[in-house]
């Protein structure tokens, strides 16, 4: 048999696991871009920052990187809220978010990357944890723990966020903030405060996503750039602001990237995300689930 079926099945499974991880990477953008209308192109930079913090904590104390990520979430929340405050005061309030607001986030992306290069150099960094090496085996199927665990925990994070957004007062206010300012006023909620909280949450997710990333692969500062295409491809593919859409977009991209990497070599993988992004923008800008 010429067609390597086993290879294909393994590629698809690895893609699903990778897609699970992409959910964690993208869910913050789905909130910031999809719900708040803030084009935070620095999102991947915060993820890389999360990776390096997990790395430092892990290297210094031997603490589990995922636990480190969870512990960093409140800190990242505060960071996100602070960034939003600057963004609001300097750009959103003056109606300059289109040009200068974007440049602002680009500057943050850039400063983070160069700052990390200055401190840590361009060497790849990785973490130590019991689940980084081994894998589960079923017949010919491999389920590496370094992919399996981030995938499962990403789904947990998504579930928690979905519950929060649909069941709580604050969550519903976040969903309404960009679409229906009138309804928000009726709820007597201050839209600036709501957006600040939501953006804080969006950045808080990157602390965990960063920890997942450095478990999955060694990280160096410029890895973040590859994720720019990915996060926006997934968010747009899934229909902005839709969490179920984010899951579908993430899985789809994960599978296609994994198959591409398996059959054509990993150096082609970054082009896949961009191809997806451009095709989506050109033919289905409202996303797969969009009307």
């Amino acid at each position: 048999m010429d067609f390597p079926l086993e290879l294909l099945i393994n590629a698809v499974i690895a893609g699903v696991l990778l897609g699970g991880f992409y959910i964690a990477v993208t869910v913050g953008i789905s909130i910031a871009f999809g719900m708040l209308d803030i084009v935070n192109i620095a999102h991947p930079a915060f993820i890389i920052l999360g990776s390096y913090i997990a790395y430092i904590v892990n290297a210094q104390t031997g603490l589990d990187p995922i636990l480190a990520g969870v512990l960093m979430m409140p800190v990242f929340y505060v960071l996100g809220a602070a960034v939003y405050q600057v963004y609001y005061l300097s750009f959103e309030r003056r109606g300059q978010e289109a040009l200068r607001g974007l440049a602002f986030f680009f500057g943050i992306l850039f400063i983070t990357e160069v700052g990390l290069v200055l401190v840590f150099g361009v060497d790849y960094r990785y973490v130590e944890a019991s689940y980084v090496g081994p894998a589960l085996h079923f017949a010919f199927i491999d389920l590496p723990y370094r992919l399996l665990i981030p995938c499962i925990l990403s789904l947990v994070m998504l579930g928690v966020l979905d519950l929060f957004l649909s069941r709580t007062f604050l969550g519903r206010a976040i969903k309404a903030v960009s679409q229906d300012q009138g309804a928000l006023a009726l709820m007597a909620a201050n839209p600036i405060r709501i957006k600040r909280i939501a953006f804080g949450i969006s950045i808080a997710t990157t602390a965990l996503a960063g920890a997942f990333l450095i478990i999955i692969q060694p990280v160096e500062p410029s890895v973040g750039r590859e994720y720019i295409g990915r996060v926006f491809a997934i968010a747009v593919l899934g229909g902005l602001g839709s969490l179920p859409g984010t899951v579908i977009g993430a899985m789809l991209l994960g599978i296609v990237e994994s198959i591409t990497a398996t059959f054509y070599g990993p150096s082609w993988a970054p082009a896949v995300a961009f191809g997806f992004l451009l095709l989506t923008l050109a033919f289905r800008p409202s996303g797969l689930l969009g009307r």
Binding site: V39, I41, R225, E226, I228, G229, F232, A233, V236, P270, A273, F274, L277, L278, L281
Partner: peptide, 8 residues
Amino acid sequence: IATLALAV
């Protein structure tokens, strides 16, 4: 966003 990805 598309131009960002184009470079990559």
